[in-house]
Design a protein around this nucleic acid. Structure first.
Length: 123
DNA sequence: GCACTGACGCGGG
DNA sequence: TCCCGCGCCAGTG
């Protein structure tokens, strides 16, 4: 049984503001399952969240673009972010964004609104 | 049912 | 601060 977790994750991902980045753990947390960060990555990789998901705005806790395969080309994620005005720089570990500056910092209000949305949708 | 895997995260040294 | 090891949990074979 797949879980409302993916439905929730889809909603949260679509709510990531233009020009901002979120982490897997952050999304999992907003979904009410802090321990499920890995499932977020899995879901995005397999296109489990459906169409219209800004997957390029999701990075790991260190701000590294996981670089992976769900994009047409290897530098696709980087290009999409730069197009949104996000600064992406190269490190030995890969392309990285400045989470201090371009990270999506959630307010307590946002977190509660998500809970309310989930509740009203019964998921 | 068992074991392995992975777009991950955190705490300790 | 950087690194390493361990923990997590749904999917998959």
């Amino acid at each position: 049984m797949s879980f409302d977790f993916y439905k929730r994750a889809a909603i949260v991902c679509r709510a990531i503001p233009y020009g901002k980045t979120a982490t897997y753990g952050q999304i999992a947390l907003l979904c009410g399952k802090p321990e499920n960060a890995r499932q977020v990555g899995y879901a995005l990789n397999r296109g489990r969240l459906g169409e219209g998901i800004p997957a390029h705005r999701v990075v790991n806790a260190r701000g590294i673009l996981s670089g992976a395969a769900a994009f047409e080309t290897a530098d696709m994620q980087k290009r999409l972010l730069e197009k949104e005005g996000v600064m992406v720089h190269f490190t030995p570990d890969g392309w990285q964004v400045d989470r201090k500056k371009d990270g999506w910092h959630n307010t307590m209000d946002e977190a509660m609104q998500f809970q309310q949305i989930f509740g009203s949708l019964g998921i």
